[in-house]
Simulated assay, not measured.
Amino acid sequence: MGEIFVLEYSQDIPEASLYEIANFCVLSGSELIYAENGIALISGSVSNISDSAFVKRISRVIEIKDRQEAISGESLPPGKFYVRFLDGSDCHGSSLESYLGGILGGSGRVSFSSPDFIVRVYHLEKWYVAIEIFSGNSSQFEKRRAPRRPFFSPISMHPRIARFLVNVSNAPKNGTILDPFCGTGGILMEAGSTGRQVVGIDMSLQMTAGAKLNLKYFGIRDFSIITGNFLEVEIPNNIDAIVTDLPYGRNSPMHRQDILELYRKSMEKFGKILKRGSRCIIAVSDLQMLPGALPDFTILKVIDNRIHKSLTRHYVIMERR
């Protein structure tokens, strides 16, 4: 067994969080040992998990004990620190932190203002002493929310969801992601922020101009934005994955029959663009629109996200056959 890491993840959409973490593990050859109540244990590598949409914190385990009394702190590096405790079993409170600091040798070494490292202790089936190596900053997503962009549409996907869809597309870091209905560029911004090249298409000149403005504003330079009908546009032959929020009733003037036909023709073209084994990730609001439109794809996973009483978004993860 390799190094063990503890991940703390958001439970806003638990199914999405766990799928993303498991997908990262598959890509890195790591093993997901445990995942429950917002805490996951991984054996192996955590490379690229800092790009996660939902992982809030990563800590490297330095000590595993069956009982809290057995914790010694002998593996702690020199320097000042403070302790934070999280109980996945809900049988201890945060008041245990001062006790843990003591048995970890914190006398004269505890500093909340200028620590050299942060010790995180987790109680699951066993006791895990770990050193924090990554702490996510939710503001990175908040600053790219629609109202904070130079150009935005009121109906826009949250950056965290867009990042999740990009991550599970499995496009390589230097690969190219296509969003054929890019709108103001929300998905492209998250793909570009993780080092991918991006291609966006939209019929609206206003939207493509706005998408370019947004991408430049957030420091993304490696992009191509095309104004036109996706079904008629010639697509570059270097597309590694397709990630898109398909037009739907709430933000499209099209009638249902027209949307059904658009879905069918779009999926047909997606199949021609992607190589076998590549992924196509779509967001839809009505799964009944998809049957009969997927002859070239295998559905790997569908994740539901209830936005409010009358709207549920479905994130469909597919692989080209």
Rank of each mutant, 00 (worst) to 15 (best):
E319Y: 06
H314I: 02
S266A: 14
G186P: 00
L300N: 09
I242Q: 10
P247G: 05
T194C: 14
I273N: 09
I303H: 07
S135A: 14
P295F: 11
V284W: 04
T208Y: 12
L124R: 09
R67W: 07
G185V: 01
K216G: 09
L205F: 13
I133D: 10
G38I: 01
G185Y: 03
D87H: 02
F152K: 06
I220W: 10
M267T: 02
N238M: 04
Y9K: 11
S111L: 01
I33G: 02
P247L: 02
S113N: 05
G2E: 12
I225K: 10
L215Q: 02
M289W: 05
M267K: 04
A70K: 15
K272V: 01
F141Q: 07
G210F: 10
S59G: 06
S75A: 12
F141L: 08
V243F: 05
N167G: 04
A191G: 09
T184W: 07
E234D: 14
F181T: 06
K309F: 08
V121L: 15
D202M: 00
R264G: 01
F223W: 14
L262Q: 07
I39V: 15
N23Q: 13
K212E: 15
N23T: 06
P172K: 12
H123W: 09
K216N: 15
I317V: 13
V243I: 05
K173M: 07
D202T: 00
M289K: 11
L18K: 12
I317Q: 11
R60Y: 00
F5M: 02
P154Q: 01
K216M: 14
V129L: 13
V243W: 04
A241L: 04
F54M: 06
I177L: 14
S138N: 10
C182Y: 12
F270N: 06
F152G: 04
R84K: 11
V168H: 04
R306Q: 13
L165Y: 07
S52W: 08
N167K: 10
G29M: 06
Y99C: 00
G195H: 12
L274T: 03
A171W: 04
I317F: 14
L290I: 08
P291K: 06
S95Q: 09
R84D: 03
S30T: 03
V198L: 02
N48C: 05
S224E: 12
Y217L: 00
Q68L: 09
R148N: 13
P295V: 05
F112E: 03
I307V: 14
I39K: 10
N137S: 11
K212W: 03
N137W: 04
I220G: 09
A70M: 13
I259G: 02
